[in-house]
Amino acid sequence: MQTIKQILALVQKDLMQEWRQKYAFYGLLLYVASTVFVMYMLLHQPADKVWNALFWVTLLFISVNAVARSFLQETTGRMLFYYQMCTPEVFMIGKMLYHVLLMAIMSLMCWLLYIWFLGNPLIRLGYFVGLCVMGGSSLGIAFTLLAAIAARAGQNAALMAILGFPIMIPLLMLLTRISEIAFQEVYQPGLIKMWWMLGSLDVFIIALSLILFRYLWKN
């Protein structure tokens, strides 16, 4: 009970911070909008496959920026405060939940803008929206530990991209595969297996992050 309260308090604190520094949040939204607009200027109405690939790449870039910020804004003093108040696992779960929320909003936003500008090739809207939220959250979760590592190195999003992109490729490949069925009426063998793979990959990354973060946060 205590732990759940602590986690919720951490998430609440992050949301509160976001609310008070609204310019950063709007900045992120504008980042999404301008990225999609650049895609629109270059491609106008791309083919289904291009649409799908571009969508996930855009989401990848958004998640790097969104997640990197949340760790870099924690000052040393504040980290010391967390260190005394809660366990590393609680802190990590709190951060992950916050990233899931943030990325869910961002991926929905990204999806809306894609439909708006680049046309709507989707047949199964609901399926794709669900997958889009799930994929966005998976990226947010996977980048959480890497953001902590990059923040320790005192570096910006560039280091996070170097560390993260190779690791995200399996996730992105799975997501593009799973989303293919939203574009056309095709029989896709092994779809359920791929959903299971996505789920177990997420669980695997969460477990690994919780175990490893303990060593990062001592100084």
């Binding site: 530990l145 890497l146 590592i149 320790r152 190195a153 560390l163 690791i167 490729i169 399996p170 490949m173 799975l174 793979m197 990959l201 695997f204 690994l208 490893l212 060593y215 990062l216 001592k218």
Partner: peptide, 22 residues
């Protein structure tokens, strides 16, 4: 040493999806 050790463990664990999933 500490931070790169954490990344090293993470990277090795992520080799498994590369070998078994993709």
């Amino acid at each position: 040493a500490r931070v790169s050790a954490v990344y090293n463990v993470f990277a090795f664990a992520m080799l498994f999806p590369l070998i078994f999933i993709i």
